[in-house]
Amino acid sequence: MDDYLIGVLSNVGVISFIALSAYLLLLIGEISFGQQAFFAIGAYAAGIATALWGWPLAAGLAWGAAVAGAAAVLVGVPTLRLHGLYFAIATLAFAEMVRLLCELFRYQITIDGEPTGPNGADGFRNIRYIFENDIGPLQFLVLIYALLAAALLGFMLMERSRLGVAFRMIGEDVALAGLQGIAVARFKVLAAGLAGALAGIGGGLYAHLTTYVEPRIFDVMLGVHSLAYGLIGGLGTALGPLLGVLIDIGLLESIRSLAGYRMIIFGGVVAFLLIVRPRGLLDETVVHYVRRTWYQIGRGRGN
């Protein structure tokens, strides 16, 4: 594989984490414009752990996920009482606060004679773990997709468990879910925490992939994108947001020759897609159909 392809696929993988994070909240019926905050927290926390404290990458990523998850729980408690547009805008406000705090955040240590660490609006450069430990682009790609596969496995297990059922019930009808004895508030905060941790892992991977982060990366654009991925790819399965990311980055890469008209075509395609399929390509109906057909084939073979 050439470096360019590896680079594109790495981006697809890393962005998939934040797309999955927004998707998890869509499952419980909440729109978040703010998952980029946890992506940012994960990126900074993991970057600080490896570049400044000399932690190994695995520990750094875990730390990033933990800090992001904890932050998501803390924000989730007051905001998840809100609903609909109120929740969406509250998450947006929080994420912008995080971005602006990153612009003010300075924490530098001199390493190898050079100041290293977050430096306000200049960002956090020289997250050199992959260079110092001689991790090649292909190796890092494998790492990204291994973690992504683990996350997807988690989603599949969740969808089959009581937890997944509870999440989807809350998404469908909060009052009804409450009447069925589901502790709505607790499950919502749990979902927010898990979503935050997912975004945090993505952020940690992003920081080590690109080796530098800037606060501006984590602005509203990233948040709305991650939300859009689920809508484009489909809300029926966790593969939906991944498909959304693939369509976004893949389509944008493949129409590069159109240069200045790229976004015009891309925006038009997405708008048209949403008219035809308002809940995405892999929506609940498609997923249900595929699952039924699959079981029927299985039964046919069994007889």
Binding site: Y4, G7, I217, M221, L222, H225
Partner: peptide, 18 residues
């Protein structure tokens, strides 16, 4: 040496192939 570029506010939308 290879040179790539992206816009910090939208690194995935606007970038230059290295």
């Amino acid at each position: 040496l290879s040179v790539g570029a992206d816009m910090p506010s939208m690194p995935m939308m606007h970038n230059v192939r290295p």
